[in-house]
Design a protein around this nucleic acid. Structure first.
Lengths: 170, 170
DNA sequence: GAGCGCATGTAAGCTGTTACATGATTCT
DNA sequence: AGAATCATGTAACAGCTTACATGCGCTC
């Protein structure tokens, strides 16, 4: 479901596009929120066209199809935004490593946490370098603020765990 | 892969257990980090036994099998902890709704964000009520700190977006 | 002995990843 | 002409969810 929404959202936010374009827009603007490979996007667009959410507006060279959102697609998107209670299943390998931290000994634990800290620092740096959005800049703005806040919180937390570990060695 | 690790971790942290027990331990202690249903756990334990990571220590009433971690299982777990670079693909419906917030009009946007704020508040409340761990309390401690930090950051962010939205109405 | 909760499993279907395959266009 | 990159697609597999199915053991 959410892949459809993301595709409808991108088509709405920055206009009709091909599967290839959409894959690039995912990489450029949406990848801190949702990811999709072209191998998932192409068949999904075909299904969405079959369901009347998008249609092929134009066909270019080498079978390139430009998709545009239909009225029904817009309605689906709007109703998901307003009515859908967002669900987030958390499956974080990082948190799992942290949960199980007492399994490894003290020095290894510090190394694990240093790696996690670097992870958050890198994520923070990446997000600080993101320009809001190539299409309309309103899109993505708040999501970016969330990513930044979460990354900062994670970084501070990692530092705090490292000092807790270091303090407990004595 | 990570499901195996989570199961090995739980078996190590609080001792041999059946599939049913493990499903309950997931619910009780690990669910802010990883989730798994019994329908996923039972077959995975069978595969893990075939791979020599666990073995059946005892069999009880109605086919109840008690699994225990083998040496090979311990080694696998340890090496994952130390060597595995944690990977976290973020797919957050919540962040997606936020990304696409400009699609809906002003009052609706505020309602969407109020819902998200309630979500973070509820998550924070849930996590504040979690006792560290029923087995050894060292486990899960830092992961819980992370969850709390992320939830607090999310809550503050949601509040900030709501005031940005309210300020921009005038 | 009837009902409820315990406990284990299977099956179908969806989502997502990785790898394979292919042809068109552009650049040098 | 050859190489790189653009562009689209398919196939196989892994992971997860939801629903179905079944039987045991305890309590009233």
């Amino acid at each position: 479901m959410s892949l459809r929404i993301a595709l409808l959202g991108l088509l709405t936010a920055s206009g009709p596009a091909s599967g290839y374009d959409l894959a690039k827009r995912f990489e450029k603007s949406l990848n801190h929120v949702w990811q999709a490979q072209h191998s998932q996007i192409y068949p999904e667009l075909v299904k969405m066209a079959a369901d009347g959410l998008v249609d092929v507006e134009a066909e270019g060279a080498r079978g390139r199809k430009i998709y545009a959102v239909t009225h029904e697609g817009s309605a689906t998107l709007r109703s998901w935004m307003v009515d859908h209670e967002p669900f987030m299943a958390i499956r974080s390998e990082m948190a799992l490593q942290t949960f199980l931290l007492p399994l490894v000994d003290h020095d290894e634990a510090i190394m694990v946490m240093e790696r996690i800290k670097r992870h958050f620092a890198a994520k923070l740096a990446t997000m600080e370098s993101i320009r809001p959005f190539d299409g309309k800049p309103e899109f993505g703005r708040y999501a970016l603020q969330l990513g930044l806040a979460q990354a900062r919180a994670g970084l501070e937390w990692a530092e705090s765990v490292i000092s807790q570990l270091k303090a407990s060695s004595r």
